[in-house]
Design a protein around this nucleic acid. Structure first.
Ligand SMILES: [Zn+2]
Ligand SMILES: [Zn+2]
Ligand SMILES: [Zn+2]
Ligand SMILES: [Zn+2]
Lengths: 156, 156
DNA sequence: CTTGACCTTGTAGCGACTATAGGGTTTGCA
DNA sequence: TGCAAACCCTATAGTCGCTACAAGGTCAAG
């Protein structure tokens, strides 16, 4: 199986497959006389493992770790559980902060309904006033402290 | 006001301020004889505007657009509303796909409770079996199609 | 006169790809 | 046999929003 066929079977881009090999996630396949990569069922499984983990939002570093565990099955699995737990809490945090973000954006959006000129746009007005230190609907939902602007998003 | 003082007042890193200037988001300030950047209240506002928009998850490209609108206030504000709408729906989509992700991860986590060896770990077993084409708790919640693995996450 | 805190530019790194450029190979068909 | 299309290869640079150096210049206090 050439790389294009593997790409077709997995839905993964050719360039991404080569990238995974470069990163040491996918084992280097045998090459034909002309240097073409030839894949077998084992590597198809490897790639599907990677893609499955990626679809669960795991980092390549995490996947590398999981693959290492897969290789030495006599180890204790506590680290696997921890890895998943970390992933769950990371995702949970992201959900929470994005939900807040959505509320903030909706509150901001609510400042403009009709279409008029920018000068009268409640959205832009809110943003400009907030940059001058005044409270804003997005970050001060119910008459709270008008003071410092929290950096609500850490990493996205 | 030197760059360090501006950084202190806004909670933004010095390097990030210079980065915003390089990217054309923050107007280039006057320089002292020795080349130090000197900021005034206007640029403090500009930076706060940027930071406020960033805290709403907007991209630098979006912020550039908003700043352009701020500059020409005679335009119609429809584009602003659209920009916010796009941002809302992007965030909403992210929330939805992350919530699904969380459920998938929790289902996977549920496959291993006690600590034992990797060979018996239900999590790793699930991941390996899924890579061989079998259905998995994470992507096949209630006896659905065991067939192709959807790429559930587009961009994170 | 030295120390330390500040400032400058330029460059490289992160993560997970994606996209090119500039080639070589294989296959099918006239 | 000639040629084109479809495939493959490597190497390099770009994406986004920073962050972290390195190597040097400036300034105020002691
Ligand atoms: Zn408006
Ligand atoms: Zn706000
Ligand atoms: Zn386990
Ligand atoms: Zn699954």
């Amino acid at each position: 199986m050439l790389i294009g066929e593997l790409a077709r079977q997995t839905g993964c881009e050719v360039e991404t497959i080569r990238y995974y090999e470069r990163e040491g996630l996918l084992s280097a396949p045998l090459r034909s006389a002309s240097g073409y990569r030839r894949y077998n069922a084992e590597q198809l499984g490897e790639l599907n493992f990677i893609l499955h983990c990626r679809s669960l939002g795991m980092s390549l570093a995490d996947i590398r770790q999981l693959a290492a565990f897969k290789a030495d099955s006599s180890l204790a699995c506590d680290d696997i559980n921890q890895l998943i737990d970390r992933q769950v809490s990371k995702v949970h945090q992201q959900v929470e902060s994005l939900r807040l973000l959505e509320q903030q954006l909706l509150a901001l959006r609510d400042r403009c309904h009709d279409h008029h000129t920018v000068a009268e746009c409640g959205i832009l007005q809110t943003l400009v006033e907030a940059s001058e230190g005044e409270p804003c609907v997005c970050h001060t939902p119910f008459g709270q402290d008008p003071h410092p602007h929290p950096h609500s998003m850490e990493k996205q």
